[in-house]
Design a protein around this nucleic acid. Structure first.
Lengths: 152, 152
DNA sequence: GTATATGCAAAGTCTTTGCATCGTT
DNA sequence: AACGATGCAAAGACTTTGCATATAC
């Protein structure tokens, strides 16, 4: 996807830095912090400044190309702004973040549409817990501990 | 509610500062930041330090008496940890935060229980939009602007 | 009396901003 | 050529931490 035209329609300029940040964000498929994105992008352009990453992300958000999500760790995480509603499952064991689409968020929107008088614009749903992988591992630890002579 | 015994069972001590913060949090019924809570508590105890507020909140969270919520403004907000699931509606116009209980979050839990293998521990649902009050006001502004000779 | 909590100030983390220079349009 | 964007460093906002003193137990 070429962001040049999009940037220019809003009076922004297409710079190598912006292209690099945008490309890295799309490649990531994840939910990177500004710093992680900076680390990534720095491999191709070592001088690209962290401040420029922050500024670029704000621009991309303004164009609705990117979006900041809050996963509860105090930092901002960034993702490509897909039109579909999505929510995030955060594993407290391995830190992995699963990005889920589906009708859950749409159901929430419907639920809210009835009655409250609140005009819903954005639904941020973050679920904390333990992912399938880690649940298995934790169970085995539990078993191991339980089987010790002096379990503590 | 007397937090003394609860604190002591976990090896904590009941200090005037802790009691004041806890009382202020309960009185608030809202979602105060550490600083707002500090402002509140300072009226009764001008020397109570902001760092003590932060430390107290961590202790209360450890006892599951209080809980931090992330409303998307980068700061932490604090509330009494009711056992019931709840979610928050944040108005982007007036900043008001509505705290809602109800079956929405329970529905989400049920939805997640099916299949993913993810063990849900905490559901954080924050909905951004415009509250009923402000929707009315914004509509009237729209009408006013639309009726001007040179609408812009 | 002892261990924990407090106040204060300093440091830490994440993010934004001022400014001279550089580069896109 | 003009104006927006970058790099750099400094400042900002929020939160945590080190340490000496005070206080709950």
């Amino acid at each position: 996807m070429d962001v040049g035209p999009l940037l220019r329609t809003e009076g922004y300029r297409l710079t190598p830095q912006r292209r690099l940040v945008w490309d890295a964000l799309r490649r990531a498929e994840g939910h990177l912090t500004a710093e992680e994105l900076h680390d990534e992008v720095t491999r191709a352009a070592p001088d690209l400044n962290l401040a420029s990453v922050y500024r670029t992300l704000r621009v991309l958000a303004d164009l609705d190309l990117a979006r900041e999500v809050h996963l509860g760790d105090g930092r901002g995480h960034w993702e490509v702004a897909h039109p579909d509603d999505a929510f995030h499952l955060v594993c407290r064991s391995c830190g992995e973040v699963e990005h889920h689409e589906g009708d859950l968020v749409e159901n929430i929107r419907r639920h809210l549409a009835g009655g409250h008088g609140f005009t819903t614009e954005r639904v941020e749903l973050v679920v904390h817990g333990v992912c399938a992988n880690c649940t298995g591992r934790l169970d085995s630890v539990t078993r191991e501990v339980a089987s010790r002579p002096e379990g503590r």
